[in-house]
């Protein structure tokens, strides 16, 4: 019991501590690929600490919602991230929420962040909120359809069960899972505002979405929101790892050694994914806002097609 609690706490701390490193890796990769030296890998940690120590400036017209939102967004993202199996499945609280609840927790974060964008009453904030709402409205159903495919294959929406099923021999190679993987990657890119959907490193541009919403935030509020955004990125990467590449993770009642090994494997996988994301972002251009619905709609259709293919293959068997 005590050991279970220790591992659960380890998981909770791991997801928050490793998130800035992933962002650092993505940035470093992009810098290297464009022949810049780039900031050191640990720069995101320093950024967050620097911001947290500064005084926060709040606009005159803002309401109380404005300075509570960062913590709400942070908390919902952190809880969601902690519920995704990283190095081990079936942790102490892993049954508290399934994948649908995790999606809804992220939706809660988006809901409050969009409200905060409207709170100050500037046109940039409204622009960000309105576009974020559109992207969310597209990405969420795509995500649910992906969940549907996974639940068809693994017979559960509980991530621990899905991961355990995926490591078993029963899976085999399935076209539907390939489609679900592509769809999930598209959703992850859209949800995290990465290129080609949104560019996280731009400011003062009419194309920005996430950055426009949080334009009025500063100091510790901005630090918390940035950390939440980094956690969200690592959450999606962890989700992809957990569902499609779970090998090495400690399944069910594994020994302590297995879990430690699982943690090492997880970190390696996460950082590899960071390098891949950096390479992908360097090789592609950002798309216009109204091309995004086609892009994310593609994910929805892929997920749906995957589910239908599963039906067909089951009846043919």
């Amino acid at each position: 019991m005590i050991l279970d609690l220790v591992f659960q706490l380890l998981q909770v701390m791991l997801v928050i501590l490793i998130a800035p490193l992933l962002t650092g890796v993505v940035r470093a990769t992009k810098a290297r690929l464009t022949r810049r030296r780039g900031p050191p890998l640990l720069q995101p940690y320093r950024d967050i600490l620097r911001l947290a120590r500064k005084e926060a400036i709040v606009a005159d017209s803002a309401s109380w919602l404005f300075h509570h939102t960062p913590y709400i967004v942070f908390a919902s993202t952190w809880v969601a991230a902690s519920l995704i199996p990283t190095f081990a499945t079936d942790l102490l609280f892993s049954w508290a929420a399934d994948l649908i609840a995790i999606i809804a927790l992220l939706g809660a974060g988006r809901f409050f962040l969009s409200l905060a964008g409207l709170d100050v009453g500037t046109s940039f904030g409204g622009l960000g909120s309105s576009r974020e709402s559109l992207f969310g409205a597209l990405a969420e159903p795509a995500m649910i359809v992906i969940v549907f495919t996974l639940a068809l294959v693994a017979g559960s929406t509980q991530l621990s069960t899905v991961a355990a099923y995926m490591t078993s021999d029963a899976v085999g190679l399935r076209v539907s899972l390939g489609m679900a993987l592509v769809a999930l990657i598209i959703v992850a890119i859209a949800e995290n505002g990465r290129i080609p959907v949104d560019n996280p490193s731009t400011h003062l541009e009419l194309t920005m979405v996430h950055e426009a919403m949080i334009l009025e935030y500063s100091g510790r509020h901005l630090a918390v929101i940035e950390l939440a955004a980094m956690m969200k990125l690592s959450l999606y990467v962890s989700l992809i790892i957990c569902v499609f590449f779970p090998w090495g993770a400690a399944i069910a009642d594994a020994s302590v050694a297995d879990r430690v090994f699982g943690a090492i494997v997880y970190v390696v996988k996460l950082l590899t994914a960071g390098v891949a994301l950096g390479a992908f972002e360097t090789s592609i251009a950002k798309m216009r806002v109204f091309r995004v619905p086609d892009f994310v709609g593609g994910a929805l259709m892929l997920g749906f097609l995957g589910a239908l293919l599963l039906f067909v293959s089951r009846t043919l068997k």
């Binding site: 600490l49 947290a52 120590r53 500064k54 005084e55 926060a56 400036i57 709040v58 606009a59 005159d60 017209s61 803002a62 300075h67 913590y71 942070f74 908390a75 952190w78 100050v120 009453g121 500037t122 046109s123 940039f124 334009l215 009025e216 100091g219 510790r220 630090a223 918390v224």
Partner: peptide, 20 residues
């Protein structure tokens, strides 16, 4: 999160016109 930040980082708050 709120307690840790207010305790160990900064709790200062300033009102100012919106930046936009």
């Amino acid at each position: 999160a709120s307690t840790v930040i207010h305790r160990f980082a900064s709790g200062a708050l300033r009102r100012a016109p919106a930046w936009d």
